[in-house]
Amino acid sequence: MAEKKINLLVKVWRQPSTTSVGSFVDYKISVSPDSSFLEMLDEINNDLEKKNLEPIAFESDCREGICGTCGLVINGQPHGPIPKIATCQLHMRNFKDGDTVWVEPFRAKAFQVMKDLIVERSGLDKIIAAGGYISVNTGSIPDANAIPISKERSSIAMDAAACIGCGACVAACKNASAMLFVSAKVSQLALLPQGQPERTRRVQNMVKVMDELGFGSCSNTYACEAECPKGISVKNIARLNREFILANVKSDNIEA
């Protein structure tokens, strides 16, 4: 099939290490509109390697929009101009011949740039470790159908559970807040009967660690929802706030 290629000027953030100073570097590329954005970067990298130049460091894994590894700011928007997709799902047919495209890493106080477009997001794991689970050991468990859960409730919990942990919400927020990420997990577990015993502790512990790690407070701009590749709703943040207030009113952690 004869394919028509589009020509682009791609301006990519290059930064050799965390401590070094970064800058934009220009690359010209002629690419198939059926290629994905990351395949376009692959092509630039293959050309660079042929010239014995260091390829652009960027992360990706599943390239199906579910692992949450990839995350670039494209023309100022986390995951690029098309709503509700991850960077790896963005295809070049969304760009026009002659366009200039700016590519940057996610920027947030809690996400350090490691090299070029790679950032460190382990803070999100630390928040989950603080309480984003139901404390159940392998084995001691009732039959899966022992607790009926309404289809609606289960479905809302699933909406929240769809979060891929990419951190775009943090990158989109002017306060670099992780509220959408945290609220998605808090909501999922608060909505389910299995999550009730730890409901109070969970929200308190997760919010505490979130604050300690330097994520900002909610900016109330809804930028997080707008840039979320999975369309996680800010209603979850409202639920998180309710859960947090309620937890502080009727905390199980009674101080002596």
């Binding site: 139901i134 159940v136 468990i141 039959d143 899966a144 009926p148 559970a161 389910l192 299995q194």
Partner: peptide, 22 residues
Amino acid sequence: NSIIDQCVAQGVPFAREYGGML
């Protein structure tokens, strides 16, 4: 069968029917 029990206990939101069953 134990796997399904385990996952439900962890809060995995499997698809359900209107009666609340999996």
